[in-house]
Amino acid sequence: MANLHIVRSSGFTHNKLRQCLQTLMAADQIILIDDGVYNASHPDMMPLLNTHKVYALQDHIQARGLTPVPSGIELCQYDDFVALTIGSDKVITWQ
């Protein structure tokens, strides 16, 4: 009943983050990877942190010098990413 949304691009330049948020259901989860990790501090992301679980791949955050991340964003490893994928009904990639 819950989907995993994978966001792969910066919401400051591309509109994929907005499109993701427009289709987001109450129980859905989000993971930020690649340039999607820049959305950790995007204004559209802030209100979401109270209502949804939002993850970001730690390696991709560190590669871009984005630590520390805003509280509410949970850093995860590749194996956590795999587990999230398996645990979700559907995986929707925004790229």
Partner: peptide, 19 residues
Amino acid sequence: MADGVFQTKANQNPEGIGN
């Protein structure tokens, strides 16, 4: 400018993702 300003962040680690 725009997302190019992200390049100016200190402590980036491209090698962490194989770059």
